[in-house]
Design a protein around this nucleic acid. Structure first.
Length: 519
DNA sequence: GGACGGTGAAACTTCAGGTTGCCTC
DNA sequence: GAAGTTTCACCGTCC
């Protein structure tokens, strides 16, 4: 199977050379790198050197415009992607806005985009085969020990993307790059001739185990210690480790916690979930988190409540991690904010000298980010100020929503009805990224933060105002179809042809020119 | 003489990703 | 640990 082919050495960058060669052959390539920044930078480097065929130019130009106008106001990331796409290159990672991710994936499948530089997201979630796969980085940074070789399993996952049988590729090529001869030997040994790692059971990880145990009890699948052990005895974990005694020890401790937190009762070895415990299990919450949330909510009555109180509460859960990192130059500012909100916070502040303090500060920063979002700050500002990309923003917002919903449910069951309204309000604000004053308008379909803001600033502030508003004026603000739709929603029907549309200037087209010149 | 832009080296920063819940009048 | 980004000094050009 040994087969070698020469690739023209045009530039000092081998990834670039391989990609140019791939395009020459009329094929496509995926480049896997180890960070989001690298994906963007590599894509940029390649896109600068590509010579496009005339026929591709127009399609790519259009696609580039689409990428640029995905958000109301393009972020730096949007501009960067748009510039790359214009040359048939894209980057792909979890920070991308989902609409842009789709654009990239679809247009790669269509063959319009030739090269994608990506982080591992692409190898797992989506099925995007290419003739060539270039694995640029085989090392990745991971917490305490610095740079480590990636698992063989992951490497195989990358290579699995090579070759497109649907497109009559008889074979695909996966290419690794090495800097030195010894590195080359290591790659061949480890990855090409090496064995993939064993798959390990994660059951013994406590949050997982806690969640399962409560769920087994709540669904009445297991109601005694013996039944629990019987169940876990049949799991992959038990098969793999055969260390049932250790598992038993952990289970005993977890049962004690669950009882103490009032999620289960134990009488004569009979385990039964309480109403609260059942709900916790239905919500898929880690019981530890559920207990933390309840404890926080109980403190609410003695605190000066603000949205920030709840935002920080959910930010400080395991579920929301990894949190936003507090950079050295932000340290002081974050501490100041922590002090400023002190009287509103529902979680307990760890001592400055505990290692946990770092996480606590991160939770403050994460809550500040949420707070800015519900203060109608746009994605560009969030990217600049918090270094959080649109795609990551969505994930965090989703998680926060789930935890706030759970908090609502827990409030109901623990008779803290006063908090429910507040929590519900924050959830809507979080969903839309809007200030409280927009809430009445956001209840309308087709109305998000941008349109609601426009209407509000033009003195249409409530449903009553919408009813009273002149349809022509409304049309000018938010367009004809949407005006008709919301009028209908408040119980007024208009005949479409009766609505006059004043020809006015539309929102100016966003252009790449500004950004390009800066480069 | 000053504004501006380009360049390159040094200093500084940051580092992959993912599943869960509930429908809301 | 290494890649990428930011910062800053330096230089040339133009008005």
């Amino acid at each position: 199977m040994q087969k070698t082919s020469k690739i023209k050495h045009l530039y000092d960058n081998n990834v670039l050379n391989i990609c140019l060669d791939t395009i020459d052959k009329g094929k496509q390539a995926l480049v896997f790198v180890n960070t989001k920044n690298s994906a963007e930078a590599e894509a940029e480097r390649i896109s600068r050197k590509i010579k496009l065929k005339e026929k591709d130019k127009k399609v790519l130009e259009e696609l580039s415009q689409k990428v640029l106008t995905t958000l109301d106001r393009p972020t730096k990331q949007c501009q960067r992607l748009a510039l790359c796409v214009r040359n048939g290159v894209a980057f792909h990672h979890a920070g991308l806005h989902s609409a842009q991710r789709e654009l990239v994936e679809d247009n790669f499948k269509k063959g319009i985009i030739k090269i994608i530089c990506a982080t591992p997201t692409l190898a797992y979630g989506v099925n995007l085969p290419a003739f060539r796969v270039v694995v640029r980085d085989l090392k990745r940074f991971s917490a305490p020990r610095g740079m480590n070789w990636i698992p063989v399993l992951e490497f195989l996952q990358f290579c699995g993307r090579a070759g497109r049988p649907d497109f009559n590729d008889k074979f695909g090529e996966a290419i690794c790059l090495s800097q030195t001869e010894s590195e080359r030997a290591r790659i061949v040994d480890n990855y090409i001739d090496g064995e993939p790692e064993e798959i390990l059971s994660k059951l013994a990880v406590e949050p997982v185990l806690r969640t399962y145990i409560l769920s087994l009890i709540a669904t009445e699948y297991a109601n005694t210690n013996d039944e629990l052990m019987k169940f876990f005895g049949k799991t992959f974990y038990a098969y793999q480790f055969k260390d049932i005694r250790k598992l038993k020890g952990i289970i005993t401790r977890i049962l004690k916690n669950l009882k103490q937190w009032e999620f289960i009762t134990i009488s004569d070895d009979y385990l039964e979930a309480t109403l609260l415990g059942t709900r916790v299990s239905q919500l898929y919450l880690d019981p530890y988190t559920a207990h933390y949330l309840i404890t926080c909510l109980k403190r609410a009555k003695d605190k000066m409540l603000r949205p920030f109180s709840f935002l920080q509460m959910v930010s400080y859960t395991l579920e929301l991690r990894p949190l936003l990192t507090v950079r050295v130059r932000e340290y002081e500012h974050t501490e100041e904010k922590a002090a400023e909100y002190q009287s509103s916070l529902l979680s307990l502040e760890p001592s400055m000298f505990e290692p946990e303090y770092e996480e606590y500060l991160k939770s403050i920063k994460t809550a500040l980010f949420f707070n800015d979002w519900i203060d109608e700050k746009d994605e560009e500002l969030l990217l600049e100020q918090y270094n959080i990309r649109p795609g990551e923003t969505r994930v965090k917002l989703d998680l926060a929503d789930w935890l706030l919903y759970s908090s609502e449910e827990l409030s109901k069951l623990t008779k803290m009805h006063g908090l429910i309204k507040e929590l519900a309000k924050i959830r809507v604000r979080l969903k839309y990224g809007a200030k409280e004053e927009l809430l009445p308008l956001l209840r309308l379909r087709m109305i998000g933060r941008a349109r609601a803001r426009k209407m509000y600033n033009n003195k249409i502030k409530t449903i009553e105002d919408v009813k009273k508003a002149d349809i022509t004026k409304l049309t000018q603000l938010i367009g004809k179809q949407i005006s008709l739709s919301i009028k209908k929603q408040v119980g007024q029907e208009f005949r479409e042809e009766k609505v006059k549309v004043k020809k006015g200037k539309r929102k100016g087209q966003t252009s790449l020119a500004k950004y390009e010149n800066k480069k």
